[in-house]
């Protein structure tokens, strides 16, 4: 075996094993194939969904919500976090509230969002925006506040004013921590999306999962679940890539 093949094997061994178990257990009758059909049947159903274009429609609807909420969260939480982190008294004042909200599960507020914003797209994007904002906000605040004080001292000794200090030292130093928050938010955006789509949606992968289950189209349900986990995986992978590009220096 070549080195590449060996690495590929090692990386996928567990997945292949899982697939094999999924395929054989229902066939052997160890689990009820009605509730857990063999993997090949699920994949056939997935292909059918893809062919008829249904899968694409639902995925598009989901991604649109997810990415809108995620992008809005980045656009609002980063500036807000920089502001709060920079003004220490403000951070001290807001900290108890931040702790409270941080420890409240976002989905607990879903009914509130629905109540206020209705069942449409607004409430779905809003709950994703809300859930994604926290990791970004908290990490940005931490990033700004935990900048090595010696770097600040050194820059101040060279006579840098507050604005230049922020631009040349605080901001670049905070980038890796902010990115950790963005990566977490990426995972949240998919997580919360599915739950939001199970309530009063007419499209989307969460809707598809729920709808298939209600109509006892079990293979379709699993097909949608697989789609969402692959989607989440790819999203996370691209964010990790991006993160690495922006923080090559943080390897001390």
């Amino acid at each position: 075996m070549t080195a590449v093949a060996r690495r590929a094997f090692r990386a996928s061994a567990a997945i292949v094993l899982l697939a094999a178990v999924w395929e054989t257990l229902p066939r052997l009758g160890a689990v009820n194939p009605v509730f857990l059909p063999p993997l090949t049947e699920v994949l056939t159903a997935w292909y059918d969904l893809l062919r008829t274009g249904q899968l694409l429609d639902h995925t598009q609807a989901s991604l649109l919500r997810s990415l809108t909420g995620f992008a809005l969260a980045i656009a609002t939480a980063i500036p807000l976090g920089l502001l709060i982190g920079w003004y220490r008294p403000l951070a001290g004042f807001l900290n108890p509230v931040l702790e409270l909200f941080r420890n409240t599960a976002a989905l607990a507020l879903l009914p509130v969002f629905v109540l206020i914003l209705g069942l449409g797209e607004t409430s779905k994007v809003a709950i994703i925006l809300y859930a994604c904002s926290w990791p970004i906000l908290l990490n940005t605040i931490a990033g700004v506040r935990n900048v090595d004080p010696l770097l600040v001292k050194s820059a101040r000794s060279m006579g840098l004013n507050a604005a230049r200090l922020f631009q040349k030292v605080i901001l670049p130093a905070a980038v890796p921590t902010v990115f950790t928050g963005i990566r977490l938010a990426g995972a949240y955006s998919i997580l919360v999306l599915i739950a939001a789509e199970m309530v009063g949606a007419k499209a989307g992968l969460g809707y598809l999962i729920n709808y298939a289950q209600l109509n006892f189209r079990v293979t379709d349900m699993y097909a949608a679940i697989i789609t969402i986990s692959v989607l989440g995986l790819l999203f996370n992978l691209s964010l990790v890539r991006l993160e690495r590009r922006f923080s090559t220096w943080r390897t001390t």
Partner: peptide, 19 residues
């Protein structure tokens, strides 16, 4: 009166910008 570029400081822990 405050810091200035007429004085340069070298710190024990270098204080280099890691990025």
């Amino acid at each position: 009166e405050g810091p200035g570029l007429d004085r340069g400081i070298v710190f024990q822990q270098y204080a280099l910008l890691p990025w």
